[in-house]
Amino acid sequence: MHNQNSSKTVAPHWHQSIELGFLVSDNQLTFRDNNVTYHFKKGDIWIVNSRNVHASCLDTTESLFEFCLIIDYGFLKKAYPEFDQIKFNLHGKPESIKQLIAYQAIEKNLRVMIQLLQGQKNPSTKLALTGQTYLLLASLIENFSCQNSDYQNQVNDNLIDRALELINSNYMTDLNGTNLAKQLNTSLTTLNQQFNQAVQMPISKYITVIRLLNAQKELLNSDNNIDLIAINCGFSSTKSFVRNFKKWKGITPFHYRKVFH
């Protein structure tokens, strides 16, 4: 669960897990999933498929309450071994009666989970949350899934996962696509092809996104000066950091910290 305001836009990112979102508060959230833009309002539920690039932005100054459930890929594979062969299609309230009934049941499950998380924890809380997760997953598979036509042409998961580990561990260094490909014993062409297929962006852009996300955290949670943040997050210079940050957020990191720190 998290509250969000106009300063807390979520940059494009992806993960192997699936993400289930539920807008609890009475406002509107702009959400982009695999290059398609959706406008969610109170009560809307949506799901982001594994490896889909997604981002969100609150267009008003009002606070937002969103419940976000990320279901681990390993858990999914164990619970439903054919998980890679399906994909989900849920972006707000459905139209058919059958799906609407299932949708209302899912909303009830999510509200129960919110109550469990907000209430007093006891030894059975984790068990209750796990039970609700299984109920949600069963309903989603039964009512909001279809065959994944890309199943036979999937990316090299092992290569992508190893690349992600190296990026997350070494983004603060002079890491780039060329030396990353060398570390992975593959060509830059292959690495870019795999990343474009997996996350719809080249490796160099993804590295920059990770650096910007970490720089944003440091701007908000530390008093380090801009030069030091640029170094800590792997940018070649302060000028490069400022240019990329302004392109991302529309304002300089100096202004961003002044407004939101």
Rank of each mutant, 00 (worst) to 15 (best):
K217A: 15
Q194E: 15
N192R: 05
N214Q: 12
D84V: 04
Q132M: 02
S240Y: 09
Q152S: 04
I160G: 12
F195E: 08
Y80S: 02
I251A: 03
F245N: 07
K249G: 06
K87V: 02
L29M: 05
L175Y: 00
V259K: 15
Y80W: 06
L64T: 11
Q16V: 03
D44V: 13
E62C: 13
M113D: 05
I210K: 08
I203E: 00
L137F: 08
V259F: 13
E107F: 10
A198S: 01
K98E: 08
I86S: 04
V199I: 14
S187Y: 09
F67N: 03
H255V: 15
F22Q: 03
I86A: 03
L136P: 07
Q99I: 01
N109I: 02
H255K: 14
T186E: 09
L64Y: 07
E82H: 04
G43N: 07
S50D: 02
P12V: 03
A79S: 13
T133C: 08
H13F: 01
M172P: 05
T190N: 13
V10N: 07
H255F: 15
R111Q: 02
I97K: 11
K87G: 02
N143Y: 08
H255I: 15
I251N: 00
Q197E: 06
A181L: 07
Q28W: 10
K41G: 14
E95N: 12
E19F: 04
L175Q: 05
N143W: 09
L20W: 04
R211I: 11
R51F: 15
E19W: 05
N244H: 13
N232D: 14
Q16A: 03
K87E: 12
T130A: 11
V24P: 02
D33T: 01
R243W: 01
Q4H: 14
C68A: 15
V36P: 00
T30S: 15
L212R: 00
V112K: 02
S236A: 14
Q154H: 12
H2C: 02
L69V: 00
K41D: 12
V209L: 11
D33Y: 06
A102K: 03
V24E: 03
N225K: 12
L58W: 12
A198F: 06
E66F: 08
Q194H: 05
E165I: 12
D72G: 00
F31G: 06
N122R: 04
R243M: 08
Q104W: 08
G234Q: 04
I97T: 09
S139D: 06
L29I: 02
N168T: 00
Q120I: 10
D157Y: 13
S204I: 03
E218F: 09
L213M: 15
Y151Q: 11
E62D: 14
Q4C: 12
P253N: 04
H15N: 05
R162Q: 13
A102S: 12
L188P: 11
M172W: 08
T125F: 09
A128Y: 04
H255M: 14
I47R: 03
G21R: 05
N170H: 11
